[in-house]
Design a protein around this nucleic acid. Structure first.
Lengths: 115, 115
DNA sequence: TCTATACTGAACCATATGGTTCAGTATAGG
DNA sequence: CCTATACTGAACCATATGGTTCAGTATAGA
């Protein structure tokens, strides 16, 4: 059974609802990057990008480490299993609803044949 | 290739980031419901629930039909394929990053053995 | 026809979000 | 030591979000 009232889902789906943050995740999939790297790449101030990184970090989608002046961002630690599980369970529900609908349709067809 | 800058993803992940809306989806998976039904179930005003339904509707996760006084809400039409695809592609990226890391670790181990 | 029900829309509120600027602090490197 | 770089934090701004209340409109049913 999947957990539904889950603050982690709030955070991760919230983080994923912004296109810049989704793009940052994909970028980090290609290479680790500093805040400055990301800010340049996405035409945004350092401070602005920092906020996005904080959101991603709080959702567990990015981890960072500061060495000297530079804070390096990388993917992880979470792989979004819970989110995928939620979507899959939704898909099952959705299928169940429409299978049930099919059944009703079938029954109606039967009644048509044998009234 | 999955589409990344996609307004639909903004809408659906945004819709899913609220626990009430996730719960409403699950509820609709069990049975269609009027706005009043949902408002009662989630201890909220009609107007408040209406807003949630509008968000879900705009994300394509719920469809509604008004018959007489009653607006009935049900699942659909979207099954969240695009969202699942996005998360899966993220997972691949994530695995690739950590596989690459594994490789580096393996190479370091090799050098240890044959210095 | 009358009344209760079901919704709708506008207005309001507090807080969150996605950005900015500006003024720091800390460190790398000549 | 000096300066440029990299970040941090506070303050600000406009708009969005998640709720409310209140005043309608429209329809179901006695």
């Amino acid at each position: 059974m999947v957990q539904y009232r889950h603050a982690r889902l709030d955070a991760s789906f919230g983080a994923l609802s912004d296109p810049t943050r989704r793009a940052v995740l994909l970028q980090l999939g290609r290479a680790d990057a500093s805040i400055t790297d990301l800010a340049d790449k996405f035409h945004m101030t350092l401070t602005g990008m920092k906020k996005h990184v904080i959101v991603l970090e709080q959702a567990g989608l990015v981890s960072t480490q500061k060495i000297g002046r530079v804070r390096t961002c990388k993917l992880g630690p979470r792989q979004l299993e819970a989110e995928i599980a939620w979507l899959e369970s939704y898909r099952e529900l959705w299928n169940a609803r429409f299978d049930a609908l099919d059944e009703v349709v079938q029954q109606l067809k039967q009644k048509e044949k044998n009234p």
